[in-house]
């Protein structure tokens, strides 16, 4: 028990250190290593892709707020910390590396049935983007409207019956 507590304390200390003195933590990634900007458009269809200014976002959030445990930084979420307090830097840090593009396909759903699997609730790629971005934007007063980040394409206008596809005189159900 004692030793465990000690380890925890050390881990915490290191974690704080990690934030304050980034260069000393050799196993953790550095913000400067990250790309200036990322084009997020692998799912673009109804909306255009997003040019994500990574360098700018680094100012607002720590790496693990978006990258969880993969960048090697200390994990704050106690659920994650159960396993990842010490797991170090992962081979894959990109969103697409872990978050399934086709989250609900049969084969992927079957992998979730593995009895020992903890990550049964990992959002798909689209969910991961939006859940992460919007929830933070709400608290930091960032843009939250759909078209604040990406403009609607013609396909999108068709889908939403808007813009060039705005109904001249649409139907509404009679009665109530």
């Amino acid at each position: 028990m004692q030793t465990r507590k000690k380890i925890m304390q050390t881990a915490l200390a290191i974690a704080f250190g990690g934030v304050l003195m980034v260069p000393t933590q050799i196993w953790s990634m550095e913000a400067e290593d990250a790309p200036e900007s990322v084009i997020i458009d692998s799912l673009a269809n109804l909306y255009t892709g997003v040019e994500f200014n990574h360098a700018m976002h680094v100012e607002y959030a720590s790496c693990q707020e978006c990258h969880h445990h993969t960048t090697g930084g200390a994990v704050v979420n106690p659920n994650c910390a159960r396993c990842h307090s010490n797991s170090g830097e992962a081979d894959e840090v990109t969103c697409t590396g872990c978050h399934e593009k086709d989250r609900f396909n049969k084969t992927y759903l079957r992998t979730l049935e593995a009895p020992e699997l903890y990550h049964i609730d990992k959002p798909g790629l689209k969910g991961a983007y939006h859940l992460n971005c919007i929830s933070c934007h709400e608290t930091t007063s960032g843009p939250t409207g759909c078209q604040d980040c990406h403009t609607m394409t013609l396909a999108g206008e068709k889908m939403f019956d808007t813009g060039s596809h705005t109904p001249a005189k649409g139907h509404s159900a009679p009665g109530h």
Partner: peptide, 26 residues
């Protein structure tokens, strides 16, 4: 998680071939 974007309504409308709505889905 729901932010009320009505994407589901729009997708349903198209998938099921339902009539064009009176107001756009956005």
């Amino acid at each position: 998680r729901c932010v009320g974007c009505r994407s589901c309504e729009a997708a349903c409308n198209k998938e099921q071939g339902l009539p064009t709505p009176a107001k756009p889905f956005d």
